[in-house]
């Protein structure tokens, strides 16, 4: 169980929220740009320090201001797919996926076996030697996910992983992503603007507004709220939260 109860003063508002996510559960985080979604992911990853509160996984604190614990990002075992994927452009697809294993001082043989497994599973083995910046958007997304999963993370964070793909690719990747996340029994949080992602990937959804949770519940509840909202606002029901 991932437990988050944090406060942080941001430039325009205070981020203040409390969430619990069970193992194997996929929480979809939706909300306007700048409402604090990515900040929350970065706090969980240890890249931004909350002002106060706690972040714990299965009773183990990752951050706790009351006892001054702040585990460094490299020791949190978090798989993070960044919005722009952040694939290292000077490395090949193989080296990108192997990066997290090299930091753990695994032998080359072990690294090769694991990387081969993950790349083959994602259909990327054929392009293992290609530079990360030379591959297509869909391939980048798969590499980023393989790179995050190969370290066997305890938590998965995905920041709009489908936003830079075209519509047709998005539909295909949604299915893939859902299956992948399902197969890893860890708490997952995915930030998205697209309610199609919420509907087809998530178990539960949270709507964030100015650093607070405005609505939390089953995917269907948030979807139904969003449909009403879209009718009132006259927006495209597919991507409401931009």
């Amino acid at each position: 169980m991932l437990e988050i109860d944090v406060k942080k003063k941001l430039r325009d508002f205070d981020l203040e929220l409390s969430i619990k996510i069970s193992r194997g559960e996929i929480l979809m985080l939706v909300g306007d740009n700048g409402c604090g979604k990515t900040t929350l992911l970065n706090m969980i990853a240890g890249l931004i320090e909350p002002d106060s509160g706690m972040i714990g996984l299965d009773g183990r604190p990752l951050f706790d201001s009351s006892i001054k614990i702040d585990i460094a990002p490299e020791r949190r075992r978090i798989g993070y797919v960044f919005q722009s994927y952040a694939l290292f452009p000077h490395m090949s697809v193989y080296e990108n996926v192997a990066f997290g294993l090299r930091t753990r001082n695994l032998s080359n043989r072990e690294i090769e076996l694991l990387v081969r497994d993950h790349l083959a599973d994602a259909g990327l083995w054929e392009i293992r030697n290609a530079r990360a910046m030379k591959i297509s958007g869909g391939q980048k997304q798969r590499v980023a996910l393989a790179r995050a999963l190969i370290i066997e993370p305890d938590i998965l964070l995905l920041d709009e992983p489908l936003s830079s793909l075209d519509i047709r690719k998005q539909a295909e990747m949604r299915r893939e992503l859902r299956e992948k996340l399902r197969s890893y029994a860890v708490p997952s949080i995915m930030v998205t603007h697209d309610l199609r992602d919420v509907a087809s990937i998530g178990d539960r959804a949270c709507l964030m507004e100015r650093g607070k949770i405005a609505l939390e519940g089953r995917v269907e509840d948030v979807m139904s709220w969003a449909s009403v909202h879209s009718e009132i606002e006259g927006e495209d029901s597919g991507s409401l939260m931009r």
Partner: peptide, 23 residues
């Protein structure tokens, strides 16, 4: 060099120094 590359390296287990030298 966008900070997200260093952040990605950190979440993958790299210390600040490792991220600096390898990314």
């Amino acid at each position: 060099v966008d900070l997200s590359f260093e952040n990605a390296a950190r979440t993958l287990g790299a210390s600040r120094i490792y991220a600096f030298f390898h990314v």
